[in-house]
């Protein structure tokens, strides 16, 4: 919590500045969209956090999102298979991707960067080849029920009358539930502790009797499964999917959200609340740029700068804290020496 104060301040600042600069920013419609997209990025941010905590990385998320987003309508519409088969396929593809990443990284000791970079290319190519680069849509009636996933809470059965249900996206709800589950897993179970320990020091964790291989595979599987879910939700939300570009760079946004939220790419650190803030900040920035009439082309530049500033501020604060601690310890030592 304490760690995330900096990013919380930036978030509030950007929010207020945009609200002052643009009247349409605080419209219900815009805010709904903002919260929904933030939640979607937050969901895949949670996924990649598991991998980052082990000290790894997953670059294949965007391509995996593209692959499941294409495969689903391809099976259900083009091949006229039942919806359940399509959903099962999403699950199977994500599971297979996660397991193979984990096995290659632990058993063959390949670098996560390399393994998932290959995944990035492989999944993208498969998605494009499967439909010969044709755009796929989610307009068909078969998907109507699933679209609840990206609708308003008030559209859920039995939730019409709940207060505020019209303003809250279902995606946000899913994100919150997923976030709570992930936070419990990381902080309250022995497996979460295993991940944090092995992310800091895999050898010491192994020497403490932890099956680090299994835990690392679990982390990649969780990441891929959440990406699969995220892919489905993104696809339902966007409605029209270009096989060559859908999901591009999403992994980088997810990684950025995790890093902004306090994950160290060295591993062993991460808070789910921070990731939520990171994802929200990124979506907010994208939204603010268009609301404030800043040139669209500058969007990546602005986001890049904000992340950089956030990381620099974090590092500076850490150094000051370390210095203070050293001074304190030296003082204690002298005091002890004098008293003895």
């Amino acid at each position: 919590m304490k760690k995330n104060i900096g990013i919380l301040c930036i978030l509030l600042f950007v929010f207020l500045a945009t609200a002052l600069g643009s009247s349409s920013f605080i419209s219900a419609y815009n805010l709904f969209n903002l919260v929904e997209r933030s939640a979607l990025y937050g969901i895949i941010g949670i996924g990649v956090a598991f991998v980052i905590i082990t000290g790894g990385i997953d670059l294949s998320i965007g391509s995996l999102i593209g692959l499941v987003a294409i495969t689903f309508p391809f099976l259900v519409i083009t091949k006229e298979m039942p919806l359940a088969v399509g959903l099962l396929a999403i699950f199977a593809i994500s599971l297979a991707a996660g397991v193979s990443h984990g096995l290659l990284i632990t058993k063959l000791k390949l670098q996560p960067f390399v393994v998932t970079l290959c995944g990035l290319m492989i999944y993208r190519g498969l998605a494009r080849w499967m439909v010969a680069d044709k755009t796929m849509g989610y307009g068909e009636p078969q998907f109507e029920n699933l679209k609840l996933l990206v609708g308003k809470v008030s559209q859920l059965p039995g939730c019409e009358g709940l207060p505020g249900a019209k303003q809250i996206p279902v995606a946000f709800l899913i994100f919150v539930v997923l976030g709570i589950l992930a936070a419990i897993f990381l902080n309250k179970t022995i497996y979460g502790r295993y991940l944090l320990a092995l992310g800091r020091n895999e050898q010491a964790a192994r020497f403490s009797g932890i099956n680090t291989t299994a835990m690392i595979i679990v982390a990649y599987v969780i990441c891929s499964l959440i990406s699969g879910l995220g892919g489905l939700m993104f696809a339902l939300d966007y409605g029209s999917i270009q096989p060559d570009s859908f999901g591009n760079f999403y992994e980088l946004y997810a990684i950025a959200a995790a890093v902004l939220g306090g994950c160290s790419l060295r591993g062993g650190e991460g808070s789910i609340f921070g990731i939520a803030l990171g994802a929200a900040l990124m979506r907010l920035l994208m939204n603010s740029i268009s609301m404030l009439g800043i040139d669209d082309q500058l969007e990546p530049t602005v986001i890049g700068m904000v992340i950089l500033i956030g990381v620099i501020a974090d590092e500076v604060v850490k150094r000051i804290a370390a210095k203070r601690r050293a001074v304190l310890q030296a003082r204690q030592a002298t005091a002890e020496a004098n008293s003895s």
Partner: peptide, 13 residues
Amino acid sequence: KQQGIVLEMAVRQ
């Protein structure tokens, strides 16, 4: 430091 303890974690952990 490499195998015995996780340096960045607390005594308790």
